[in-house]
């Protein structure tokens, strides 16, 4: 029997801070004794484009990427991006999505409009979706930059890793003066409705 590998996609808009989220997650999973692969594409896509990071962990991970229908979790920093990667979501998978909207260029130029009810449509097809205003939680915690940690807080509810291990990883990953803000953002994300 094949050993189960857990697949997490972290998606968003270039510049939103997904790098720190994948760094924290990767470090935590290594410390927990898992085999881990974290994969992302650098370069052109950084500049305001759609960005994806694949995080895979388990007893043994081979492929560095997550294929269609394989993501157990899609953690999205932006609403539209949460929907964009629906084809990658496993049938039993879950989308954890910040409801913030950032217009892509076709919307800015007027060639397309921002599809406002896209998450509802995805949910209507049977997908599990945790949509919440992570930006508001981050601001409540003290910094809009803590969106990534608020999202990880929500993710943490579904992973078999003790709460204190997450807070330890936060302390190890973020700069000292931001630890308390990020711990609060994590807690708010963890408890969010």
């Amino acid at each position: 029997m094949k050993k189960k590998v857990t697949n997490i996609m972290i998606v968003g808009v270039g510049g939103q801070g997904s790098l720190l989220a994948s760094k924290l997650l990767g470090r935590l999973l290594v410390d927990e004794g898992y085999d881990v692969k974290v994969s992302e594409v650098h370069g052109m896509s950084q500049r305001g484009g759609s960005v994806v990071t694949y995080v895979r962990f388990g007893e043994k991970v081979t492929s560095p990427i997550i294929d269609l229908g394989e993501a157990d979790f899609i953690v999205s920093f932006e609403k539209l991006e949460g929907a964009r990667y629906a084809p990658w979501l496993a049938r039993e998978g879950r989308v954890i999505v910040n409801t913030q909207e950032i217009d892509p260029m076709p919307v800015i130029t007027g060639a397309a409009s921002y599809p406002s009810d896209i998450l509802e449509k995805l949910a209507a097809k049977g997908a599990s979706i945790d949509a919440f205003d992570a930006l508001a939680l981050a601001e409540e915690a003290g910094s809009s930059k803590a969106v990534n940690i608020a999202l990880l807080g929500r993710l943490a509810r579904y992973l078999d890793i003790p709460y204190e291990k997450w807070t330890e990883a936060i302390a190890k990953t973020v700069a000292e003066k931001f630890v308390s803000i990020n711990e609060k953002a994590f807690s708010l994300g963890y408890q969010s409705e």
């Binding site: 808009v13 270039g14 052109m44 896509s45 950084q46 500049r47 305001g48 484009g49 759609s50 294929d67 269609l68 229908g69 394989e70 993501a71 539209l80 991006e81 929907a83 964009r84 629906a86 084809p87 990658w88 979501l89 496993a90 049938r91 998978g93 892509p104 260029m105 076709p106 919307v107 397309a112 409009s113 921002y114 599809p115 896209i118 449509k121 995805l122 097809k125 049977g126 997908a127």
Partner: peptide, 18 residues
């Protein structure tokens, strides 16, 4: 594996100049 498909196109988000 097969994931979910949406009935409408999601607007593309190409890289842009800052």
């Amino acid at each position: 594996h097969e994931g979910y498909s949406l009935d409408e196109a999601v607007p593309v988000r190409p890289p842009v100049r800052c």
